[in-house]
């Protein structure tokens, strides 16, 4: 499976704020990649760096296996994006906007292609109306239409449901599923709402304060039975070496100086416990933490401090 996005050590330093701090992640072909985080967590900055709106302070971004800085033009021809609000030219009609951005993306679409596109986002009936007269939901759909008009491989949607009513949110969700399942697009979608991501994403990245918290398959991450277990031992370094050499290495999540984290199903805790004993790891404590959902809700629902995990 081709890696569509590969981000390594991405950092963006604004004057006295590190918006994105040493972030690495990758998106595979066909993924609906959910980018979760609170407002201000660094989602938008990361996405803007992927679209060359913001220059990274350091780190590397590769799209379609090419370096973004060097192959910008080739890459962006294959990317469609809605960045925050779906702003378009209000004095132009939906059709004119679509045509204009199609040409900017390097294609000369026929009238039929444009109308089909508008049909897909449910705006065919309003094709010749000025965008000025559109509702937020219609603008959002037009924005997605614009992102799709040049048939890109990768679609980046930054907070696509912001400001939409429940029907609008549902429309966008269905559109994303349609793009992924029927048109086999790779999609990166960001949100600060877990509920939106968990219904569409195949893989999820959670970031906070510019750093990665968790990355993984949505099915696993959102499995209510999945738990993060925190171990404290007499000698964490020894324990880690032992665990890495054991079948448990696949469960290792991240580690802190004082603790080792493993993600596993609750039913696996007894066998972990006995294996630790067998490996002669002297256990001080074994503590199941919240499920990921609880964990994320904890992050997103308030300003409560959350320990930062590092890889």
């Amino acid at each position: 499976m081709q890696q569509i996005v590969s981000v390594k050590g991405l950092t963006k330093q604004f004057k006295n704020l590190t918006a994105v701090n040493n972030l690495s992640f990758s998106v595979n072909e066909g993924d609906v990649y959910g980018f979760l985080g609170q407002n201000g967590a660094g989602k938008s900055t990361s996405i803007r760096m992927m679209l060359t709106l913001i220059e990274p302070s350091s780190g590397q971004i590769e799209l379609f296996g090419m370096d973004l800085a060097r192959h910008r033009r080739e890459i962006l021809r294959n990317v469609g994006a809605v960045i925050e609000k779906p702003d378009v030219y209000k004095y132009l009609s939906a059709y004119e906007n679509l045509e204009l951005f199609a040409r900017l993306s390097g294609i000369k679409p026929s009238k039929k292609i444009l109308m089909d596109q508008l049909e897909m986002v449910g705006l065919a009936g309003r094709a010749n109306d000025r965008v000025k007269t559109f509702s937020q939901g219609m603008k959002q759909r037009l924005g997605i239409g614009i992102a799709l008009v040049h048939n890109p491989q990768l679609i980046v949607l930054d907070e696509p449901t912001n400001g939409l009513d429940p029907q609008g949110i549902a429309d966008i969700r269905n559109l994303i599923l349609h793009l992924s399942r029927d048109l086999k697009k790779t999609i990166v979608v960001s949100s600060h709402l877990l509920s939106e991501i968990e219904q569409v994403a195949t893989r999820v990245l959670i970031i906070d304060k510019g750093q990665k918290l968790v990355e993984g398959n949505a099915a696993e991450l959102f499995d209510p039975a999945q738990t993060i277990v925190e171990l404290q031992t007499m000698d964490n370094a020894f324990a880690l070496t032992q665990l890495k050499a054991s079948p448990w290495s696949a469960y290792l999540q991240a580690q802190r100086n004082t603790a080792i984290l493993l993600k596993l199903n609750r039913t696996e805790i007894p066998s972990l416990h006995s294996d630790l004993a067998a490996m002669q790891i002297q256990l001080l404590s074994l503590q199941p933490r919240h499920s990921l959902e609880d964990f994320f809700l904890q992050i997103t629902s308030g300003n409560q401090h959350v320990d930062t995990y590092t890889n």
Partner: peptide, 14 residues
């Protein structure tokens, strides 16, 4: 101001 700049910049032109 209109918000179209970010879309323009993310198009395949320098």
């Amino acid at each position: 101001n209109m918000g179209t700049l970010r879309l323009l910049i993310s198009k395949p032109f320098s």
